[in-house]
Design a protein around this nucleic acid. Sequence first.
DNA 1: CAATTATTGAAAATGATTTTCAATAACAAA
DNA 2: TTTGTTATTGAAAATCATTTTCAATAATTG
Lengths: 140, 140
Amino acid sequence: MSTTAWLEQLHDNGYRITSARRVVVDTVHASTRALTPIEVYDKARKKYHALGLVTVYRTLEKLEELHLIQRVHQAAGCQAFVSACHGHQHLLLCQNCGQIVFFEGDDVEPLIKSVAKKTGYEIKEHWLQLFGLCADCRSN
Amino acid sequence: MSTTAWLEQLHDNGYRITSARRVVVDTVHASTRALTPIEVYDKARKKYHALGLVTVYRTLEKLEELHLIQRVHQAAGCQAFVSACHGHQHLLLCQNCGQIVFFEGDDVEPLIKSVAKKTGYEIKEHWLQLFGLCADCRSN
DNA sequence: CAATTATTGAAAATGATTTTCAATAACAAA
DNA sequence: TTTGTTATTGAAAATCATTTTCAATAATTG
């Protein structure tokens, strides 16, 4: 999904396309790592100096609402976001470089069914994250 | 694992047993829901009025360090903790009443191996949380 | 091109967490 | 026991992230 498509999504949902939003979208879209609001702010401001941090917060909020980005939870904190435009997918994070890879979690279904049966819960959502070292970081 | 065992753990690791710590330990240990620092503070203060919020933060920090409690991540926020003294287990949360159930995740291993193979990552940790409705909340 | 109205950035307000610090309480050793 | 050392305490202040307020500006619609 291209940045243009993200902007279209924003527009289709009644939001205006502004320079500030363009540059935030570009920044988050381009990153394979999760970025915190301040990191987005710092990177994006190199391209658009007038950008305000508040606008970054507000834009991230909208992108999350449209499921174009998703929050990444880590031991260090839970404020970072990554691009998430491939529907429901699970995350695999490199603990060294922060690189993020998505993977399908079809195999989780049987586990969910079994847990539902054992516990009597009706399971509505699940949430899986793996942590490790990417091929690059392993060899260096 | 009893509260006494938690206190022993603290003591064995060179921490002193104080009234403040006792009451924080009691409070978290007794709860089947995840509690935020303020919630712990409010509950615990009913038993020990002089307790300070700062001490709650510091005690939770130590309990987490000793793996006696673990942080619970939710859409609403990631500041809450639950008792976690059964080793590595996964969480199942009731979205209505907050009740938490632990379950083993043996079935996750094959998935992890398969993802490792596909991605070239060496996977060190994993993290699984399920959300749904408990039997009680379903029927009411 | 004009009018409407969402969006902007700055500053202030809020909320959570951490740090500082002097008083106190726990505990090991005598 | 009692004592001395030192970790722990709570309050206040400091910090950090996030949200709200507001008047100025810029994006869209007609």
